[in-house]
Design a protein around this nucleic acid. Structure first.
Lengths: 149, 149
DNA sequence: TATTGTTATACTCTATAACTATA
DNA sequence: TATAGTTATAGAGTATAACAATA
């Protein structure tokens, strides 16, 4: 049962923003499915990835990078902390700031998460040749990180 | 205040699915801002666009095209109907099915919505040359409508 | 004064199951 | 049996405002 069989062609809505939304829905569903066995969601995976990256990000920088409200980062970090995957550490340079770092177990879970995410991406972008995937990545990067922001 | 200034480079998370999610967040925010004055949200705009397209889609086909649950389409159509923008009409060939069609006013609002959406897209994709936009559109289309689905 | 993290609240979106009427 | 639409409900995601501690 395809979309076409349901009576709507694939070119009914041609807005690039709609295609972005639908592609994201497809990719997000695949990522969520892949991450579920690790006890992670798409958003908590993203936070864990930043914490495991070694840059010792503040919650504020995580929020702006992921386009989340700072208050959302609080509860995401709370969740990851309850799972024993990240810790809040004080920033020596600014006592208001807490940096989020992955625990040893957090780094291990992150390693496995990277693997399953790679699998989900291979699945979602299977129709694209490697150079097309790189092209898509490059174009998306420019939309995702606009010059002014 | 840029992301980079916040301490995280633009290459911390390189997953293409993450770029898709962030690009979609950027684009969705712009679309939502543009549609708000017309009393539409991104999702109700999509339903209105299908209803105004002349293909007389069933609620079921709208759901699969937009990757929504059929029950979500019910409330979206309810909302558009309350606004006087669409009507449910019986399908002569199948009495279970209701097709969704735009009213005259719905078609008028849709026309204006197409304009403001175009403006939002020009804003979001301003950094891309026309051929790059077409390329992005084509690549996204293949991800958004995978072969099997 | 402005910023970081936090709490609280309300609203939107998403996912699921169950029901009815039709097929 | 299966499908189209509907209702109900709970959970996840998003947006906003206010507050204490610190800059």
């Amino acid at each position: 049962m395809t979309d076409v069989a349901q009576g709507l062609g694939e070119d009914t809505l041609t807005d690039i923003n709609f295609l972005l939304a639908r592609a994201n829905a497809v990719a997000g569903a695949a990522s969520a499915r892949a991450l579920a066995p690790l006890g992670l969601r798409v958003r908590s995976y993203a936070v864990l990835a930043l914490a495991a990256g070694g840059s010792r990000p503040s919650q504020r920088s995580i929020a702006s990078y992921l386009r989340l409200d700072p208050s959302q980062v609080v509860s995401l970090v709370d969740g990851l902390q309850d799972q024993g995957l990240v810790l809040r550490e004080p920033d020596p340079g600014d006592r208001r700031t807490k940096v989020v770092v992955a625990t040893r177990r957090g780094r291990e879970v992150h390693r496995r998460a990277v693997e399953v995410i790679r699998g989900a991406e291979d699945e979602v972008h299977a129709d694209l040749a490697p150079d097309e995937r790189a092209q898509l990545s490059s174009l998306l990067h420019r939309v995702a990180f606009p010059a002014g922001e």
